[in-house]
Design a protein around this nucleic acid. Structure first.
Lengths: 257, 257
DNA sequence: AACGCGGTTCCATTTTTCGGGACTAACCGA
DNA sequence: TCGGTTAGTCCCGAAAAATGGAACCGCGTT
């Protein structure tokens, strides 16, 4: 307990839910006395973590969090350089590009921009997606030792998308291909109709890995063009490695001893 | 005091500063005992508000905040519709577009995307900028009663940018023009070399105002083209009003009594 | 007018938080 | 190798804040 942990519990609960919520909803959702929820939500709003719609009396995430969210990994040289290269790639090709990170068995979008070709879905920074049903995610998983991958995927999560790997064997097969080729592609997996190619790269000092992707409509981009895009991404990666150094071992956490 | 308000104080302090920070830095910056800072930072990291670089032992904003930041005003129909219209505008014209909000005498970017024309600066969501030195900001200020504007701008903030209004009189003159024309433009004001046109629109139910902008290089876009862009923005606004209704009175906060 | 619903306030009790100071680890220059 | 400095952690009694059950409020409904 403690006010801080309760506040964070509220934030976590709110994440991914409907964008606004009331006192009772929170109290019910977190099995918390109404009085506690009321007081805490009010405090959080006073502090700026939340704001309150004057009309509906409902709470929503506050502007402070928008500002802080933007700071996440901002200023890391590799991130900024990669992002700049991807913006340039979008300019040249017209396709949507972005950077995403691995978190458990999901990926989180760090940076993104829409392309000029019509692509229905815009995946904004902060959005989550299943890592196993995503070229981006598999690329990041590919950097982990097999044992670690196995650990994360037991049990194997259910996801009703025909093109996504449906079991651990299929996933490892896709990961194997990604390891062999240095990039991965996906088509109509987690996001219907959306296809992507991506490469993974890691900061040699911190070891943090990220995946750079190009996304497009699966219907309008042929095999040949996808290969070209993969080549461009690999080129971006090479130039980044040239500038920032390569990361050899794929240790996500510090090596001990 | 209380853990929550201290935690938020740390977040506010961190906002806009260097992306990572240590215990002593925070303790010094917030005049807080080292022990409190140490304990609190650790707690915040455990909760996920912050994360800690294993190598440098320094703290930085956590992924949770990235995810929450994205939720800010997400799902509000007017915001999403406006953003979609602006993405389309970027597709058609190649210029950077975005949405920003007024906060005191500053604006905060809510949504943005780079254009395909080279424009040096990308102003990402969450970024702040002086409202008075910005077409976007003046448009939003223009919606307030003059008395409220006067209150916010006494004293008039210093800003060393030649093209920005240098005193309250100049600001009101620019705001007057914005009110008359229904849009505003800026060129080489807060952001060197960057020019923009923008229109303001408000949600008729909540009264929240936002400004839609198109940004471009001041050197490469002539007067005529700027007028065309302004017309396009006004058209977007009209279509949004058509769909969501107009907001007549410009009351940002609740009217009392 | 009674009821349900969402929200707030009160206040005694319990639980955290607070923070000075001692402590440890790493680093640096002599 | 030593002393000094800097960064961060830990301990623990005192003090302050969080908690939550119950009463209460206002509103729209039955």
């Amino acid at each position: 307990m403690g006010a801080l942990s309760n506040a964070v519990a509220i934030l976590r609960w709110a994440r991914g839910r409907e964008p606004d919520f009331g006192v009772s909803e929170v109290a019910l959702g977190l099995a918390m006395p109404k009085s506690t929820a009321s007081r805490l939500l009010k405090d959080m709003a006073v502090q700026g973590l939340l704001e309150r719609d004057a009309a509906t009396q409902r709470y929503r995430v506050g502007m402070l969090l928008l500002e802080l969210g933007r700071q996440y990994r901002a200023g890391q040289p590799l991130v900024e350089a990669a992002d700049a290269a991807l913006i340039e790639l979008t300019r040249r090709t017209g396709f949507a590009t972005g950077i995403s990170l691995l978190d458990g068995v999901e990926i989180v979008v760090l940076r993104s921009r829409p392309g000029t070709h019509p692509l229905q879905v815009v995946t904004p920074p902060g959005a989550r997606s299943p890592a196993w049903a995503n070229s981006t995610g598999r690329n990041l998983l590919a950097r982990l030792p097999d044992a670690e991958i196995a650990r994360r995927f037991s049990p194997y999560p259910a996801l009703d998308r025909p093109n996504a790997p449906a079991n651990f064997g299929q996933l490892m097969e896709r990961i194997g291909r990604a390891r062999a080729r240095g990039f991965d592609e996906s088509d109509d997996e987690a996001l219907p109709g959306v296809a992507a190619v991506s490469v993974a790269i890691a900061d040699p000092t911190s070891g943090d890995a990220m995946s750079l992707y190009v996304a497009f409509s699966g219907l309008h981009v042929n095999r040949q063009r996808r290969r070209e895009l993969a080549a461009m991404l690999l080129d971006v990666k090479l130039r980044l490695i040239d500038r920032f150094g390569e990361e050899t071992t794929a240790e996500p956490r510090r090596a001990h001893g």
